[in-house]
């Protein structure tokens, strides 16, 4: 554990809590892509199956359980509790265009051809593209509430901090996870355009982020 990894995990946790509380308090999931949240729930489910097979640390186990519970609670809020506020017509990204290539790639490029290993690889690849329905929704509607942009900012910061974590681990431990690093770089790139808009529009302006 290093400072980049710890800060990265905390940003990830903050992002998920921001989104959950936004929906819970406003009793509305307007502007939120339910599809992205289902994909993230799928990411955690397929990656954290090792909760049953290996123990890393109390921190690791607790965080995994918290992420899983919050991911499913968010999906529950969007699709069941506050379903009437969900903008399904704007959330029109075709997730099969992500799921099929990601599933195919996880069978082709993995560390070992075993069920748990393929599911773990699938989760890594899927996480790198899971935010695309949300970014697509913002592009389509042309705006996002500031709280939604704060959620995306912390999610992007988590990714950037994980990159720093891998650089650190490579130099201090010789640790290198090729699948995670390549996917992580791809994932972080998706946030670059958003980061630019966040700093130029949201922080300098006020309220909603509108696209040019």
């Amino acid at each position: 554990m290093n400072i980049f990894r710890l800060l990265g995990d905390m940003c990830h946790l903050v992002a998920i809590i921001i989104l959950f509380l936004k929906i819970w308090r406003s009793k509305s999931c307007a502007g939120i892509s339910g599809k992205s949240q289902v994909l993230f729930a799928l990411v955690f489910t397929t990656r954290y199956l090792d909760l049953f097979t290996s123990f890393i640390s109390v921190y690791n186990t607790v965080m995994k359980v918290v992420f899983l519970v919050l991911a499913y609670a968010t999906v529950y809020l969007i699709y069941l509790r506050f379903r009437s506020t969900y903008n399904s017509e704007s959330d029109s990204f075709r997730v099969e265009f992500l799921l099929v290539p990601v599933a195919g790639l996880s069978f082709l490029e993995n560390y070992a051809f075993a069920p748990l290993e393929i599911l773990w690889t699938f989760s890594i690849y899927l996480e790198s593209v899971a935010i695309l329905p949300q970014l697509f929704m913002i592009t389509k509607t042309g705006e996002a509430e500031s709280i939604t942009t704060h959620y995306l900012f912390f999610l992007g910061l988590y990714r950037a901090l994980y990159l720093a974590n891998w650089v650190w681990r490579y130099h201090t431990e010789g640790f290198f996870d090729q699948i995670a690093v390549v996917s992580g770089v791809v994932q972080t790139i998706f946030y670059c355009d958003f980061f630019y808009l966040y700093f130029t529009k949201v922080l300098r302006g006020s309220g909603k982020m509108t696209l040019p």
Partner: peptide, 10 residues
């Protein structure tokens, strides 16, 4: 890809 790293991250 050959070497499998430890899965100790989230």
């Amino acid at each position: 890809i050959t070497k499998m790293p430890l899965k100790d991250e989230l």
